[in-house]
Every structure is written in structure tokens, then in C-alpha cells.
């Protein structure tokens, strides 16, 4: 059985020429925080609407909007049940195809565990080796973050022609802190003028080619 959740993601990504993704992590001093994940497909709505009007594509049944909506809601409901996760909200604009997920977490490990468990559950409760790794750590004013390998690997399963279309999209990773940022290791990263946030941008295609593009270690100004 393949990962159903990622089938939807793959479907949406592969069938649209322009996708905008923002992952936005805000970290509090006690290690808790807020995680937001936004997907914007509004620039491909003609294509998505025409696809959704079809019964099948390349031999696969095209799910209806109701089915997609139900699936999203199930995943969100599942996330709500995870330990250390609270205030989960999900909004979906099916006119413009903009999806926004937001949740609070008690710790970074709680967030990772929750995501891990949701994906595992969507994978028929089978564990995936790609999920065993840690992609977020915060110790002694240093945050190390990367993109979960599963995202990149699943994106690679999209056929070459469709994957090339991902060059038109953008992937933005934002990390916000409770105090100022001193420096970061990734040369591409930009620090906000108020120095409380860091942004890294690339296109989804480049990310599938080099999963380490958004890897970063961010150092905060040392506490007095």
C-alpha cells in the first residue's frame, strides 16, 4: 500500500504547474511553539478544476472534492488526538485551492512525533525508515532543521515531466524565535529586519534534486 496522504499531495503537485508552500515554525523560549503549513495552488485553479471534472486520469480514479475534503479532515482530526499538540485549525478554500494548517505544540519532539504518527497511520500503521530521523532539534540557543526525507522522496516519485513543472513553484521555510538571531549556517537564508525570523526559499523542483537545500543551523544571540 502506498502512502495515501502523499498520493493527494503528489496529485496536487504533479497536476499543477505552480505550487507555493510555506512552512512556518514559531518557537517559544520553553520549547513550545506554533507550526503553520500553507499550500497555495490558486495559480493553477483552471487546471485543478478541469482535472477534478474527470473520472480518471492515467488509469487512476480522480477523487472528488468531497473525498479530498474528507481525507484532509480525517488527517486533521488525527493530528488533534496527538500528545503535545493543541489548537489545531485547518482551513481549505476550494475556490482558490489554498490550504492552511496550524497547530500549537508543547515541544519540537512532540511535533515530530505527531507528524510521524499521522504519516504512519496513513501508511497502514507501517513504520517508514525515513521518519525515524530527527529533522528538528533545539539546544543551547541553536536550532537545527531540515526537511523530512519522506516529503522529498515522495516528490521524486512524480514523473520527470511533471516534476519539471515544480520549477515554477516556491517552497518557503520560515523560523521565528522569541529572541534575536545571531547567525545561520545556510548561505541562502535571510534574516528579517527585526532579526527575530529567518527565511529560506527555493523551488520544489530544486528541493527534490537536493533535499539538503533547506538544511540550516540557526544560532540565537546568547542569553546574558
Amino acid at each position: 500500500m502506498t502512502l495515501r496522504w502523499f498520493f493527494i499531495l503528489s496529485l496536487l503537485i504533479s497536476l499543477t504547474s505552480c505550487i507555493e508552500i510555506i512552512d512556518d515554525l514559531s518557537l517559544n523560549e520553553d520549547g513550545s511553539g506554533t507550526f503553520k503549513y500553507n499550500i497555495n495552488l490558486s495559480s493553477s485553479k483552471v487546471k485543478i478544476n478541469s482535472l477534478l471534472a474527470l473520472d480518471s486520469l492515467d488509469g487512476k480514479r480522480v477523487p472528488s472534492l468531497e473525498e479530498i475534503s474528507e481525507k484532509f479532515n480525517n488527517v486533521v482530526d488525527l493530528l488533534r488526538t496527538k500528545e503535545g499538540i493543541s489548537e489545531v485549525t485547518f482551513s481549505a478554500d476550494y475556490n482558490n485551492y489554498i490550504f492552511k494548517l496550524k497547530c500549537d505544540f508543547s515541544s519540537l519532539s512532540a511535533l515530530q512525533n505527531a507528524i510521524h504518527e499521522v504519516i504512519k497511520s496513513e501508511n497502514g500503521n507501517k513504520s517508514l525508515p525515513e521518519l525515524e530521523e530527527t529533522w528538528l532539534t533545539f539546544e543551547e540557543d541553536k536550532l537545527v532543521r531540515s526537511i523530512p526525507q519522506i516529503t522529498v522522496q515522495k516528490a521524486k516519485e512524480i514523473n520527470t515531466e511533471d516534476r519539471a513543472l515544480l520549477k515554477n513553484g516556491s517552497y518557503t521555510s520560515i523560523t521565528r524565535f522569541y529572541k534575536e538571531v545571531d547567525q545561520c549556517e545556510n548561505d541562502r537564508c535571510v534574516v528579517s529586519k527585526n532579526r527575530m525570523a529567518v527565511m529560506l526559499r527555493t523551488d520544489p523542483y530544486s528541493l527534490t534534486q537536493n533535499p539538503n537545500l533547506l538544511d540550516n543551523a540557526i544560532y540565537l544571540v546568547a542569553s546574558n
Binding site: 507555493e20 500553507n38 490558486s42 485553479k45 482558490n96 528579517s192 527565511m199
Partner: peptide, 13 residues
């Protein structure tokens, strides 16, 4: 057509 884009504030992102 119309589309939505995200507009970033340089001060805070």
C-alpha cells in the same frame, strides 16, 4: 484569471 500570492513584510516575515 486571479490568483493569490503571499506578500511578506521584510521587518518580520
Amino acid at each position: 484569471t486571479q490568483k493569490f500570492v503571499f506578500d511578506y513584510d521584510e521587518e518580520t516575515f
